[in-house]
Design a protein around this nucleic acid. Structure first.
Lengths: 335, 335
DNA sequence: ACTTGCAATGTAATCGTTTACATGGAACCA
DNA sequence: TGGTTCCATGTAAACGATTACATTGCAAGT
């Protein structure tokens, strides 16, 4: 251990003032006279002083970071959202702590750990399946839910999933499709549910039937999309178009069909949800519903910061608009 | 503000012991008698005590988290690596702080900020282009480089990129290709360089020529792969196979070719690098060089923890093996 | 019986800031 | 001139843990 890093005491000594003045000069410059402020700054430069955040945080009763709880870090869906989050947190002086909610077997305890231990000044939750009773009553730092949400009253930022589904169905309908299948997200997932519901009511409004075997159970993974393809191929009576609750599943679905020699979109049209980056480069390029992921991250970040700054603030939930991106995976059905 | 959370004092009072004993009972159980230990545990349960990490960290002169510096958070390439990292950090009691190195315009200052401010007990750097002088001399927490590396002596965990390139070329060669092109990574990137060099020496060993116009400048993005496709199509004298320095570029390349009506692999074989998840589901499924990304994250995490636990430790760099994944994007050239 | 050693615990200093409160002086006003 | 007010600064008490050092009591060794 060589020359320990300078502390505020050292700066104070060099500048010939008290530690209080140094502290003020640094974090509240208008409180000190200009001349002293300059002296302090010089002393800081001379000593190479850097603030000790741990000490500051202890004193201020804060942690200086925001925690993001994601259900599966390995899922690239989150990378852009996190990038958006990070881009608003950094400038505001917050660190971004990231934890995977599904790594171990006691989510209950783990969640409590994160929420109650003062590890974060605010939390952004991307996982709608967390044990709800942990979120509800206790005193916790500001929480915002992003993408997924839970049924009681916590502020959230999300897209209008039902609307997205409706747009997708309408698009298929407009091109002439009357037999429309669906690949769902995992059971119990709020996104999956609302996309499913959105689809159902859109179909109903259009007076279309959808037999149960046209609804394939998925879990957002590519593999589950590929599995849906197998089921589709096994059908006597195949839907002419399939709306997938995620782009990843659509990838898997199209891939498996193509590997089996089935032509997309000639034999079946496919529409996805999310607009992840790769789908533009697929063949056929995937028609999909765009979710502005970066934006979602940014809004969530801004919201949580607002709630930290003003504890009384009740943020309204935000609904980010979705958008149909037309590419080449949807065409009129064969006649 | 209601009932402030219990502190160690409260626990001590309830258990009828001193704070020192409580502290020991919690973090060093064998130092206290079993009976007192139980009394303390009961008191903890009764009071709902949860440790204040900020205070502990201040006293212990640590921060309790590890920082990951990634060049571009939005790049899904990192999501699995981070998942691996997180999976070893969490159990060890470290938080994972994530920062994007490219968000703002003064990387120098930013890097210094992270390194010197005691924000992290250890740092994992995924960006080989950081200002090197910042990493070199000063006293900093343990640093390990992952994936990318810098030329001087810092421990790293990475794959054998040159070997990967060599395997790729050999595979193409074995199938009969003698005219082989390449899409590079960004200029100055160590991965790009070593894959390029690996390819060059493999070609030389096989006595193959590679005119300059067969080497397309890319930047790892899908778009740059698509751009390379344009250049490939403009060539009079096209290579029969292309080795791409990343799967993403290979996606863009294949996509753009297919959209232009060119058949992969019949008209040109493509081999990638990374084995990102989606490429298995492309049509054709992409033949590629697999990098075990999750493993890289895990090893980097273990290494940095080791270095924190034992400051004298000099970790040797680790080389994770790569592997050829044969799929359908490479076939023998047209005769 | 007297020392020695050890195990269990307590006392209090310490980590590096922030900030409530106290102080001193200048400016202003009647 | 004496009294307010206000600005700039200093003093010292927090924040909530850990841990060096001191203390105690008891068992064992001689």
């Amino acid at each position: 251990m060589q020359a320990k890093t300078a502390k505020i005491q050292d700066v104070a000594r060099i500048a010939g003032v008290s530690t209080a003045t140094v502290s003020r000069a640094l974090s509240n410059p208008d409180l000190v006279a200009e001349s002293t402020r300059n002296a302090v700054m010089d002393a800081v430069a001379e000593s190479g002083y850097r603030i000790n955040h741990t000490a500051r945080n202890l004193r201020r009763q804060r942690s200086g970071s925001i925690l993001a709880l994601v259900p599966n870090l390995a899922n690239p869906f989150f990378s852009q959202i996190l990038a958006g989050l990070s881009s608003v947190l950094s400038p505001a002086g917050y660190g971004l702590l990231i934890a995977d909610t599904q790594t171990d077997n006691d989510p209950q305890e783990r969640l409590r750990h994160f929420i109650q231990n003062g590890l974060a000044d605010g939390i952004v939750i991307f996982d709608g399946n967390l044990p709800k009773q942990e979120l509800l009553p206790a005193q916790h730092p500001p929480i915002v839910l992003a993408c997924e949400w839970v049924d009681f009253d916590l502020p959230s930022v999300r897209v209008d999933n039902a609307k997205g589904a409706q747009i997708a169905i309408q698009h298929l309908y407009d091109l002439g499709h009357r037999q429309i299948g669906h690949i769902t997200g995992p059971n119990g997932n709020v996104l999956a549910e609302s996309r499913l519901q959105g689809m159902k009511s859109a179909l109903a409004a259009l007076n279309l039937q959808q037999p149960d075997q046209w609804v394939f159970q998925g879990d957002y993974s590519m593999d589950s999309g590929a599995f849906a393809a197998k089921q589709w191929m096994a059908l006597d009576n195949r839907p002419t178009a399939v709306f997938s609750a995620s782009d990843e599943m659509a990838c898997g679905f199209m891939g498996a069909l193509q590997h089996a020699g089935i032509d997309v979109p000639r034999d079946v049209s496919v529409i996805g949800f999310d607009n992840i980056e790769v789908v533009e480069h697929l063949t056929p390029a995937l028609t999909t519903i765009r979710q502005p992921r970066r934006l979602i991250g940014q809004h969530a970040g801004q919201m949580v910061i607002k709630m930290i700054d003003d504890a009384t603030m009740r943020c309204p939930s935000e609904l980010i608009p979705v958008e149909l991106i037309i590419r080449n995976s949807v065409v009129a059905p064969k006649t």
